[in-house]
Computed example of a mutant assay.
Amino acid sequence: MGSAKRIGAMVLRYSYLLRASYTRILDIIYWPLLQMLTWGFLQSYLVKAGALTSPGGAAQAAGTLIGAILLWDILLRGQQGFSFSFIEEMWSRNLPNILMSPLRPAEFVVSLILMSLIRLSVGVLPVTLLAIVFFGFNLWALGVAFGAFFVVLMFFAWSIGLFVSGLLLRLGLGAENLVWSLMFFVQPLGAVYYPVSTLPTWLQPISWTLPPTYVFEGLRAVLIDHVIRWDLLAQGLAIDAVLFTLACVAFGLLLKSARRAGTLLQSGE
C-alpha cells in the first residue's frame, strides 16, 4: 500500500514550485490559449468568407475544429505536465535524493500524475471558458462524452510521460527533447483534425492502434451525428490499459538499468 502522506508531500513540493514562478504559470496557459485563438479565428474567417457553404457544414466544421484543438491540448498538456515535473527534478539535480528517500517509485509516479492534473487545470480550464466567450463553443456541454474523452486521453498522456521519464533516467538529459517532440509525432496519425479515412490506406491500421484516434473519431460522431460512440471509447480505453501497463513495466526496467549503469548521479544539466 502506498503512503498518502508521502504522495501528498510530493504534490505539495511541486505545487510550491509552480506557485513560486509566475512564468511557469504563464507558460502553461500561453500555448493552449495561442492555439485556441489562432485556429479559432482562422476557422471564423473561413466561415465568414463562405469557404464552407453546405447547409449546416460551417457550424459543424467550426465546432469540430475547435473541439479537436481543445482536446488535443488536454492530451499534450497532460503529458507535458507529467514530464515537466519529472524533468525539473533532473534540472535541479534533486532526482538522486528523491530516489534514495523512503519514497517508492509507485508513489513518485502517482504524485507526477496528480501534478499533471493540476498543471492541466491551470492551463486548459481558462481556455475552455474563453472558447465559450469568443466562439460560442462549450466543451463542457458534451457532458458524459467529454468525461469519457478526458479519461482516454489522460491515460495515454500518462503512458507517454511515464515512458519518456524512464528514458530520461537511463539516457539522461540528452533525451529531454522527447518531452516536447514525442507527442507531436502522434498528432498526424491520431486523426485530430480529420477522419482516419483521410490517411493513406496503409497508415490507417497504425492510426487505430492509438487511443487518441478513438477520442477524435468519437468527438466528430458527437458533434456531427449527435451520437456517443461508446464502442470507440471502450476500444480506446482497452488500448490505454495495455499501453499504461507496458509503460509502468518499461519505467521499472529503465530505473533498474539506470541504477546498475550509475546514470542517476549524472542526471543534472
Results as ranks from 00 to 15, higher is better:
Val133Asn: 09
Gly63Trp: 02
Trp202Val: 13
Arg19Pro: 00
Lys48Pro: 01
Leu162Gly: 05
Val179Asn: 11
Leu254Cys: 00
Ile132Glu: 14
Gly63Asp: 07
Thr198Ser: 12
Leu18His: 07
Leu167Ala: 06
Thr245Arg: 01
Gly78Asn: 10
Ala241Phe: 11
Ala145Tyr: 00
Pro105Ala: 12
Leu12Asn: 07
Leu182Pro: 06
Ile206Val: 15
Leu117His: 00
Cys248Thr: 06
Glu107Trp: 10
Ala191Asp: 08
Ile228Arg: 03
Ile239Lys: 04
Leu168Cys: 04
Ile87Gln: 14
Asp225Ser: 10
Lys256Ser: 11
Trp72Asp: 06
Ser267Tyr: 00
Leu210Asn: 02
Leu189Cys: 11
Gly218His: 01
Gly143Ala: 10
Asp225Lys: 13
Leu139Met: 15
Arg104Trp: 09
Thr53Gly: 11
Tyr14Asn: 15
Ala221Pro: 01
Leu253Ala: 14
Glu88His: 09
Phe84Ala: 14
Asn94Cys: 12
Pro55Gln: 07
Cys248Gly: 09
Pro105Thr: 08
Gly78Met: 06
Ser15Pro: 00
Leu254Asp: 02
Ile224Glu: 15
Arg229Trp: 00
Asp240Cys: 15
Ala258Ile: 02
Leu253His: 07
Leu103Arg: 05
Ile28Gln: 12
Phe150Val: 09
Phe137Ser: 08
Lys48Glu: 14
Ala9Tyr: 02
Gly81His: 11
Thr128Leu: 12
Leu169Ala: 03
Tyr14Pro: 00
Leu75Trp: 10
Phe146Asn: 06
Ala175Ile: 04
Phe216Met: 04
Leu76Arg: 15
Tyr45Leu: 15
Leu33Cys: 08
Val196Arg: 12
Leu232Met: 11
Phe137Arg: 08
Phe137Pro: 06
Leu52Ser: 01
Phe149His: 11
Arg24Tyr: 12
Ile206Asn: 03
Leu46Asp: 02
Gly172Val: 01
Ile25Thr: 10
Gly136His: 12
Pro126Ile: 04
Val222Gln: 13
Phe216Tyr: 09
Asp231Val: 05
Ile160Met: 14
Thr128Cys: 12
Leu37Ser: 00
Gln60Asp: 12
Phe251Pro: 00
Thr23Tyr: 09
Gly123Lys: 01
